[in-house]
Design a protein around this nucleic acid. Structure first.
Lengths: 217, 217
DNA sequence: ACTTTTTGTGAGTGATTACTCACTATTTTA
DNA sequence: TAAAATAGTGAGTAATCACTCACAAAAAGT
């Protein structure tokens, strides 16, 4: 019986079952936690091994270098972060009138990504923090965004502009304002002021409301 | 004749002239650049010394530890980042009707902080990146915010709510939405997509416009 | 049952780390 | 100008770093 840790769900993209051995999972789990807390550069492989309860050599059996271990965590997390925008159904749902308004669409995206961040917070932390230091990650992020997220998002925005719901602002600006509204709410909520008292439902609703007031025709 | 580097302007709070020796400035300059690029933990003191053109021992003559060097950069940067909100004139200007509307006030704050970030970008990067890893910095940030920035901001928001310009949203939400609108524009502009083509003036104006549409009564 | 492959081990490696210290050079003070 | 204080040096140090490797155990294949 394979244990179902959250990290397994996050990292196995292909959906294969026996992708990770027990010790390997322990390593990934320890690595994510320590990278999130102290940062990649300040975390030593010996510490990870200790926390994971394995020999240091075991880490290098599975990952050629320490950086490979980081990428094994960060790359899937990056793709999962923008997963809804990669799915084929995503744009279709909008054009099949599954969402009658941009506001409805926003609500769906917000609550979906809110749940995602809440569930996988440590991995998101690592991705977010190391994005600044590793150009491979940054380039991967920018490529995925410009090639997949942006074009689909643009179609959706134009759709609701043509429908007359959204004002004729530049599409780029609408996308930026939408994504930063979502991202900065999540950043404030989970990274910057996690200990503050938050009424998540209400605050998300207000964020959408204010954003929509600004974007509406 | 003392050289006027941007780092000197940023770091000398008291305004004293001969605060830093020439070599000390070189050290600070090299440290900021390398910390911004590779992160604090991944930058060695020997690299800093090499880049600054000094002996490694010179660094430790001025800063007891590597962390002291980091804090010598980050602490002043943190205070300068929120400096407008610390100044006594700041709130008074609003209540003396120097700004007739919240929108005017916003415009002033946006362009002021835009210029600040543009000028001191590397130091801001370091502050932003290391905030996540060093609890002293994070606590300092949270203290300054809750004790100084928040209360003044709250008075200003209430002022314009009473004047009837702003809707009766919770003050906390108005502040959060305002600050994250500013911060996320600057983050997107300078950190995430610095190579993207930006019409800064127009984008800032649109951000303010959308935000105001959302906040207005 | 035997071989092969995979998984795990931990002592050992050279390189690098933050930091020290005895010493010299320069500036300030008396 | 002599003494004192400050600024700068660079070889040296113990600790730690990412990573290797010869070997053992377990699992899988035949």
């Amino acid at each position: 019986m394979s244990e179902h840790s959250w990290i397994q769900e996050l990292l196995q993209i292909g959906g294969k079952e026996g992708q990770f051995s027990e010790k390997q999972l322990k390593i990934l789990e320890a690595a994510v936690e320590m990278f999130a807390e102290k940062g990649y550069a300040a975390t030593s492989t010996s510490e990870i091994a200790k926390k994971a309860g394995v020999a240091e050599g075991t880490i290098f059996r599975h990952y050629k270098t320490k950086k490979d271990l980081l990428l094994a965590i960060v790359t899937p997390t990056l793709f999962q972060s923008v997963a809804p925008f990669l799915a084929k159904e995503f744009v279709r749902e909008v054009f099949d009138n599954e969402y009658e308004t941009y506001e409805q669409f926003l609500r769906a995206v917000f609550s979906n990504r809110y749940a995602f961040v809440k569930k996988y917070l440590p991995a998101i932390r690592v991705l977010w923090q190391e994005l600044a230091f590793h150009s491979e990650i940054k380039q991967c992020f920018q490529r995925v965004f410009t090639e997949h997220v942006y074009p689909k998002f643009a179609r959706i925005v134009r759709h609701f502009q043509e429908k007359g719901e959204l004002a004729e602002l530049p599409v780029d600006s609408v996308i930026r304002l939408t994504i930063t509204s979502l991202a900065s709410f999540l950043a404030a909520r989970f990274l910057l002021l996690p200990d503050h008292h938050w009424d998540d439902e209400a605050e998300m609703e207000r964020t959408i409301h204010v954003l929509m007031n600004g974007l509406r025709r």
